[in-house]
Simulated scan of single mutants.
Amino acid sequence: MANWLVLAEQVLGGHELTDEEALAILDCPDEELLLLLQGAYRIRSAYYGNKVKLNMIINAKSGLCPENCGYCSQSAVSTAPVKTYKMVDKETLLRGAEEAHRLRIGTYCIVASGRGPSDKEIDTVVSAVKEIKERFGLKVCACLGILKPEQAARLKEAGVDRYNHNINTSKQHHPNITTSHTYDDRVRTVETVKEAGLSPCSGVIIGMKETKRDVVDMARSLRALDADSIPVNFLHAIDGTPLAGTNELNPRYCLKVLALFRYMNPTKEIRIAGGREVNLRSLQPLGLYAANSIFVGDYLTTAGQEKSADYQMLEDLGFEIEFAPVPQAGVVS
């Protein structure tokens, strides 16, 4: 039996997992799962206590994407029946921010499909973010695709706090998932974001026929990238996409993956993201002993569970919602 608490203390002391230790976490026997999570919680609580960060997505532009990502219902190769529309207007983004503020959401995520944003789309986001900051004081994360340095600088100047661009999978597995852009394209965007002074957010999708070695490589790559926030998605296979019918995950393995990301990236925000409800199922609460962040509400083209169920889950766990936006004068909370 591995001593997961000892490993957790070593991580808190600055130890970086070896590949052998990382694979052992993913291969953890089910009967040791609670001990593994106890170690993960020891690390999580050292940096985040019992606080949970809430995030909410607005799908600001849907479908119409020329990329061929195998997991995505919005891609050019998908036949899934999703809504398609161009970038929404400023007023729609503001209404979403108002809803996020009402729900005590810490980070409001403006997400748009496509390879990368046009300058006109950047104009819309910049205009909206300035007002979101003035009215609600929300933390804003943008996820608009591959970004040019001058676009990143504009977002930073407008008040965007964070930019999300996921690596999604390992470098070696990437060509099996998409060929319309490279793994290095994704890494380059994360570096561009960092150079502009934006907080980098980059994560993964688990369950896309990758190996456990691939999962370890993902966790280590994000450590090397120094991503501040790491969303861990679990594939929700959608009919009409190349990965339709893929069903490799079970809730216990998902918990081991979350534990791995916590042990490998101890100081970072680990967020349980898309696919949480369909893959973790009744074990969702246990995920928060490793992760310290979740999405509330719907995702891009798939539904989340009822918001009230998430708030009840956090209350039942005894966890505290981390919510600290500072609305400006004239705004009623």
Rank of each mutant, 00 (worst) to 15 (best):
W4L: 06
I206E: 06
T92K: 14
N3W: 02
I146C: 07
E248T: 09
G63N: 04
E134R: 05
D27A: 12
M264A: 15
E306Y: 13
G14P: 02
A324K: 14
G245H: 07
D161S: 05
T211Y: 02
E91I: 12
L12W: 00
F295I: 14
T302G: 13
Y311H: 09
R154L: 15
T246S: 10
D226C: 10
Q38P: 09
A100H: 00
Y48D: 06
N250F: 14
G14L: 08
C109R: 00
N233R: 05
M208R: 05
Y48H: 14
A324H: 15
K268C: 11
V216G: 06
R262Y: 10
D316L: 14
P266E: 07
L300E: 02
R213A: 15
C109P: 04
E248G: 06
T189C: 10
V111F: 02
V88I: 14
I57E: 02
L23Q: 05
A158Y: 00
L12F: 03
N292I: 14
A22W: 04
I294W: 11
M208Y: 05
Q172S: 13
K139H: 13
A324M: 13
E269T: 14
Q151R: 06
E150H: 15
H181N: 10
G116N: 10
W4T: 02
A227V: 08
T84M: 12
S282W: 13
D228Y: 11
H15C: 09
A97T: 01
V11F: 04
I167S: 04
A153S: 13
K212D: 15
K90H: 10
M87S: 11
L317V: 06
R213F: 15
F234D: 00
K133W: 02
I105S: 00
P242Q: 02
L7N: 04
P242K: 01
N250M: 08
T18W: 12
F234I: 06
G106K: 00
P117K: 01
M1G: 08
V126M: 04
R220F: 15
I58V: 14
M313S: 07
G114D: 05
R262M: 12
A303R: 12
R95A: 13
L138A: 01
N164M: 09
M56T: 00
F295K: 05
A76K: 15
V160A: 02
E210S: 07
N164W: 03
L93K: 01
L286M: 15
K53Y: 10
L255N: 01
E191W: 10
K156Y: 04
S333T: 09
R281S: 12
V326M: 09
P266R: 02
A60R: 01
L225F: 13
K307P: 08
Y85R: 11
D123F: 06
R95T: 10
E9F: 05
